[in-house]
Deep mutational scan, measured.
Amino acid sequence: WVPTKREEKYGVAFYNYDARGADELSLQIGDTVHILETYEGWYRGYTLRKKSKKGIFPASYIHLKE
Rank of each mutant, 00 (worst) to 15 (best):
L27V: 02
G45C: 07
G55D: 02
K53Y: 07
Y43W: 02
H34C: 15
W42V: 00
E8C: 14
K65I: 15
L36S: 05
F14E: 08
W1E: 07
Y61M: 13
Y17G: 01
G21L: 06
G45P: 01
Q28Y: 08
E37N: 04
G45H: 03
H63L: 13
K51E: 09
R20D: 05
K53T: 08
A13W: 05
S60L: 08
Y39T: 10
E37S: 08
R49T: 12
W1I: 07
Y61S: 09
W1H: 07
W42G: 00
I35C: 04
H34K: 13
A19G: 06
S52M: 10
K54G: 06
A22Q: 11
G45K: 00
I35A: 01
R44S: 05
E7D: 12
E7V: 11
G55T: 03
D31Y: 05
G21Y: 08
W42E: 00
H34F: 15
K5H: 11
R44M: 12
F14R: 15
E24Q: 08
L64C: 09
Q28V: 13
H34V: 15
S60D: 09
H34Y: 15
K54L: 14
W1P: 07
L25C: 05
E24I: 04
G55C: 07
Q28A: 09
G45N: 02
Q28G: 05
G41S: 07
W42N: 00
T38V: 13
K9M: 14
K54P: 08
K51I: 10
V33P: 00
Y39R: 15
V12R: 06
S52Y: 12
A59C: 08
L27A: 00
K53P: 04
G11W: 06
D31L: 06
N16Q: 11
K50F: 12
E24T: 03
E66K: 13
R49C: 15
G41R: 05
W1S: 07
W42K: 00
T38P: 01
L36I: 10
D31N: 04
L64T: 05
Y17F: 08
G30E: 01
G30W: 07
D31E: 08
I35W: 01
F57P: 02
D23I: 05
V33C: 03
H63W: 12
A19D: 00
Y10G: 02
Y46R: 04
A59I: 09
L48S: 09
L25N: 01
Q28K: 14
E40A: 13
R44E: 04
G45I: 05
E66G: 13
L25T: 00
G55E: 01
A22P: 15
S60F: 07
K53E: 11
V2N: 10
E24S: 03
E40T: 06
E8H: 14
K54V: 15
E7Y: 13
E8Q: 12
A59P: 02
D18L: 11
G45Q: 04
V12L: 05
K9N: 06
S26G: 04
W1M: 07
K50D: 15
R20C: 09
N16T: 08
L27I: 06
K5F: 09
S60E: 12
G30T: 00
G45Y: 08
Y10N: 02
Y61I: 15
A19E: 03
L48C: 15
E66C: 14
L36H: 03
H34M: 13
G11V: 05
I29D: 02
R49Y: 13
G55Y: 03
K5R: 13
P3I: 05
Y17T: 00
L48I: 10
N16I: 06
S26A: 05
A19M: 02
V2T: 11
E8I: 11
K50I: 10
Y61K: 06
G30R: 02
H63I: 14
T32F: 15
D31R: 02
E7I: 10
L27Y: 01
A22T: 11
Y43R: 00
V33I: 04
H63Y: 10
H34G: 07
L48F: 10
G21W: 06
K50A: 14
R49L: 08
V33K: 00
K50W: 11
K50M: 13
F57S: 00
Q28M: 11
R20K: 12
I56V: 09
D23E: 11
D23P: 04
L48P: 04
V12A: 02
T4D: 07
E7P: 11
K54M: 14
K5P: 10
Y15G: 13
Y15S: 14
E7H: 14
P3W: 07
Y39D: 03
I29N: 03
H63A: 11
L27F: 05
I62G: 02
G11C: 09
E40Y: 06
Y39I: 09
T4S: 14
I56N: 05
R6F: 11
T32A: 11
P58G: 03
Y43L: 03
